[in-house]
């Protein structure tokens, strides 16, 4: 009798409780802000290095052009110093974060963002036992398609306008295959990225001017949407993970005595 009484409140919530694994999974799959943060950090670092090297180089060129040898040599000395600093930084960086510690930066960023929430992990991909040759073949095909179409565009065989729409035929299958290779570690929200990439292409073909027309920037017709939509997919994933966590806490939260019960 007492058993029956105890189980009554749980019976009422049974269906809700059955949803816990679903929301836990959705939360874990979409904790993806680490990757966009790493992307931003990478871009900022590259920009900083570019500025660090470009400024003294500009100074050197300006000095020698104007016949101001002092300015030219000072600029050159600064450039050499900046280059040495960058090289030392890269050596330290590679020795600290590569090889054995390859996942350390990701771990540190993840800890910074999600540390207070604790750590969760999803089961490894089913297609795992990573087929290294498949990865190499995909990489080579992508390389050929990407640089090939870029070269054809600069040679005038492909209009800059159609560079991105043509890239849909190799970028989208690659992104979709990435999803299938990495699930269930990542959720279906990742597919927002190839979906938006395809919509972008359709809009261009339909006449919307979402592209660069100059040769110098034509490669960004592919890179900007690819990086931008992937970034967006991760950020949407992160926002969704907040929602999933809220739902999860709503289901799992127990009041006072129930929580402390034996």
């Amino acid at each position: 009798m007492s058993n029956q009484q105890n189980s009554e409140p749980q019976d009422q919530n049974a269906e809700r409780l059955k949803e816990i694994p679903k929301w836990t999974r959705r939360y874990a799959q979409n904790r993806m802000l680490t990757i966009p943060v790493l992307m931003v950090m990478g871009v900022l670092l590259i920009m900083f290095i570019a500025v660090l090297l470009a400024l003294p180089l500009h100074l050197t060129a300006a000095g020698f052009k104007k016949g101001n040898m002092v300015l030219g040599f000072v600029g050159f000395a600064l450039f050499v110093a900046a280059l040495a600093a960058v090289l030392i930084f890269l050596i330290i960086f590679i020795s600290k974060f590569c090889r054995k510690n390859s996942g350390l930066i990701e771990q540190l960023v993840e800890q910074r963002i999600y540390g207070k929430e604790g750590a969760v992990s999803m089961p490894g991909p089913k297609i795992m036992k990573k087929n290294i040759w498949l990865g190499i073949v995909i990489g080579v095909v992508l390389y050929i398609c990407f640089f090939g179409s870029w070269h054809l565009a600069t040679e005038g065989y492909i209009a800059f306008k159609y560079l991105q729409p043509i890239s849909v035929f190799y970028i989208v299958p690659w992104l979709v295959s990435e999803y299938f290779q990495r699930r269930p570690r990542i959720g279906p929200l990742f597919l927002i990225s190839p979906a938006l990439y395809t919509i972008h292409a359709i809009l261009i073909v339909a006449g919307v001017p979402l592209f660069f027309t100059t040769e110098n920037f034509c490669i960004f017709n592919i890179l900007l949407p690819l990086i931008g939509y992937t970034f967006l997919a991760y950020v949407i994933g992160h926002v969704y993970s907040r929602y999933a966590l809220k739902k999860l806490k709503g289901i799992t939260h127990l009041e006072g005595e129930a929580a402390n019960g034996d």
Binding site: K18, P21, V120
Partner: peptide, 11 residues
């Protein structure tokens, strides 16, 4: 139930 949806979760 939480652990049923995951590979593992920490304390």
């Amino acid at each position: 139930m939480i652990l049923a949806g995951l590979e593992q979760a920490d304390f």
